[in-house]
Design a protein around this nucleic acid. Structure first.
Lengths: 266, 266
DNA sequence: TGTATCGGTTCATTATCTGAACCATCGGTT
DNA sequence: AACCGATGGTTCAGATAATGAACCGATACA
């Protein structure tokens, strides 16, 4: 692995739950030598990607991301388009809609909208990391990723979030062809107990899967008719979003689901 | 320079004006070998920090920044506090207020608010890079930075943004003691013609200068009374903001400007 | 057809990164 | 006060990964 990758991978250990991390902790988690981590952190700090809190204390993410995120959003106004689609989805289904994006091999929530139709709703958090094996969004992404990526993810230890979480790589692998064929991934209580969700993939201009859009309901509220409605709204609106973002579903993606049938030629 | 720094420094070439950059361009601008740039970009791409647009085409900033910016904002809710201060500033002065943050050696606009008091206002852009030598914010930051940092900035070529832009390092250096003594930096038409601005520095918990808050008016509107009012509002409110952000002005910073006089002991 | 780009790749050379062992410091315990 | 087990940070010989000139294939243009 390249040195730059090592530096960048350190950033993945900062989460909502662990916004500040000490040098030794980071060395332990990453498996790198303390001296290495220190040097990488120094370089990251030089560019504002991390910063130290007290004098000689823990590290946290730096202000550079605010600038770069603004530039990214200016170049690719994803959030705006996504929020629009999600709002439509949560309005028409009366449930929570969210979009997640793949950053390297980390899938994290990007945007979400709630409906005011019910007293209980599935709640989301910004930048929450979604397990690829334990969420409908994760499965949707996995199903449309390269064999190498799938191997990479499934060969790592799979966390058992709930009693319902499937952690057998072979079982998960066996689920993917069906997800590919239908274009829809499902999760019932695999990530959070009492949450039932459907997800469909989002693709970029190279037809690579970059994330997913999902609609989640409390398990008790998910009936067959609601499920059908959600799947229908989800597939058509997400197909539109993919196109708005400049992306194209791959040839293998079930086209009967798309909002507009593909043009022959052009 | 470390390899990680080289990778990170590539990100600085992406701007609002140049959101997409090709491999050869990036190699030229950075001065690194094309093979090196390619390898670094590949590593950045692996982690979602850059992405390629078509098949084998230009690069742009990746989606990882959205996630990391959300985490940063969650850990350090700067934007919220800054926006509040800026809103007060633009309301009481009737002019444009903005805050900039230092990322490594790049100062960029972070947040800004307008007033509706006049028909013409100084306009700002998100993530706009502000020249350290040619803006009041930049001078405020420079004046409270280390000698090494100042040397580093002033030894590089200084862009002449307008006919009024001061580009002589020695002249700029001679301005700094006065800025340090008064706590306020001024720029009249040095960055954008017809813009007069005052800026004061913001400090972190280590008393390092992390950015600046400024109020900018059209040159024609800046009278002595307005200037005095702006400087007064700017210093007191920014001192409060620094404290809210968990920072402390250094001992050398003129304390008579601060909102609350420092406590002896504690 | 010829030229000048482009993005991307190769591989011997070499510069950079690595990591065990080392400080100095801090907080808690005895 | 002495000890312990942490912490963040530093050193330097040896291991490893970064480097860059030259290369390739593709594309665009005249």
């Amino acid at each position: 692995m390249g040195t730059a990758s090592k530096a960048l991978s350190l950033l993945n250990y900062f989460t909502r739950a662990a916004p500040k991390i000490g040098l030794s902790d980071l060395a332990r988690h990453s498996g790198y030598n303390k001296a290495t981590v220190h040097r990488l952190l120094s370089e990251l700090a030089q560019h504002g990607f991390v910063e130290q809190i007290g004098s000689g204390r823990e590290y946290r993410l730096g202000p550079a991301f605010l600038r770069l995120a603004a530039l990214r959003e200016n170049a690719v106004p994803m959030r705006e388009l996504a929020t629009q689609t999600l709002t439509e989805l949560s309005n028409t289904t009366g449930e929570t809609a969210h979009m997640s994006l793949l950053n390297g091999d980390v899938l994290s929530s990007f945007s979400y909208t709630y409906s005011s139709a019910h007293g209980t709703m599935v709640m989301m958090e910004d930048a929450e990391v979604l397990d690829l094996h334990a969420t409908s969004s994760g499965l949707a992404v996995l199903a449309h990723s390269s064999a190498q990526f799938i191997d990479n993810i499934l060969s790592a230890p799979l966390i058992k979030r709930t009693p319902e979480t499937e952690t057998d790589p072979d079982v998960i692998r066996a689920m993917l062809p069906d997800i590919r064929a239908t274009g829809i991934a499902t999760s019932i209580g695999g990530y959070e107990q009492d949450v039932h969700s459907y997800a469909v993939p989002v693709f970029d201009a190279n037809s690579a899967c970059i994330g997913a859009v999902a609609v989640a309901t409390p398990v008790a509220r998910m009936t067959d008719p609601l499920g059908e409605q959600i799947k229908s709204e989800l597939t058509t609106r997400t197909a539109t979003l993919t196109r708005l973002l400049g992306g194209f579903p791959p040839d293998t993606f079930p086209t009967f689901l798309q909002a507009n049938p593909p043009q022959t030629g052009g």
